[in-house]
């Protein structure tokens, strides 16, 4: 079973193999989780989104046509589930607070501490992670998803376009504009004071500061 390709596992699932789908998901769970976590910014939402997505994929397996990689298909479903949860949550947006990052709290789960040998690095990286997640949460969801896929998870623009089901120009535009906002928003990290004042939650959770025209698609799929 472990030597089977993703497509073979999916086919086995459709043929009634009760273990095949779980085996398939097990291979990609960490990357799917990372995308959902970065897109939603909340571990609870991410876990619900991934579960919803995978159950949907389990049931819709025969709708996979092989026009893209199985992982692309899975990522598409997870991203859509994550964005759907963000849309539903938009009526009462979550504003990340630094003090919410309790030791076992959900916010603390935004970073992989185990990858950092020095505890001081872990603390600083956790603070950085919180800053990044906070900044990401201020992006429009479509920009956030593009940034997460391309810049955080390393997908090519082409792959991200397939996952997001939009033109490559749209992905590039979303990344371009999202990066600009992140660079501005995270500028203070360039020279972080050791005793930085605690940021309050008076910033707007979702704020499009581009004057409104940024939402409209450009002529070749790009966004102005």
């Amino acid at each position: 079973m472990s030597s089977a390709t993703d497509a073979e596992l999916l086919a086995s699932h459709c043929s009634g193999d009760p273990q095949a789908f779980t085996e398939l998901v097990k291979r990609h769970r960490d990357r799917l989780w990372a995308v959902a976590l970065r897109t939603t910014g909340d571990p609870e939402e991410a876990s619900d989104a991934v579960q919803d997505a995978l159950i949907s994929a389990y049931r819709r397996a025969d709708q996979f046509r092989g026009e893209s990689a199985v992982t692309t298909w899975l990522h598409r479903i997870v991203v859509n589930a994550s964005l759907d949860r963000m849309r539903r949550r938009a009526v009462r947006p979550w504003v990340p607070l630094p003090q919410e990052s309790g030791e076992d709290g959900s916010r603390a789960a935004l970073i992989d501490d185990s990858a950092l040998a020095d505890p001081r690095d872990a603390i600083e990286s956790r603070e950085t992670a919180m800053e990044i997640q906070s900044a990401l949460s201020e992006l429009r969801p479509d920009q956030r998803a593009a940034i997460v896929l391309v810049d955080l998870e390393g997908y090519s623009v082409e792959e991200a376009a397939r996952i997001l089901e939009c033109p490559e120009g749209t992905v590039k535009s979303r990344c371009f504009r999202g990066r600009a906002k992140l660079a501005q928003r995270l500028g203070h990290l360039r020279n972080p004071p050791r005793e930085a004042p605690v940021r309050t939650q008076d910033h707007e959770a979702v704020k499009d500061d581009s004057g409104g025209s940024a939402d409209r698609p450009g002529p070749d799929g790009g966004e102005q």
Partner: peptide, 19 residues
């Protein structure tokens, strides 16, 4: 500097159970 963590075991357990 802020790598995403792997899926927590309890999340995987829940998803595996749901599947």
């Amino acid at each position: 500097a802020a790598p995403a963590p792997p899926m927590p075991p309890q999340v995987w357990q829940r998803i595996e159970g749901a599947l």
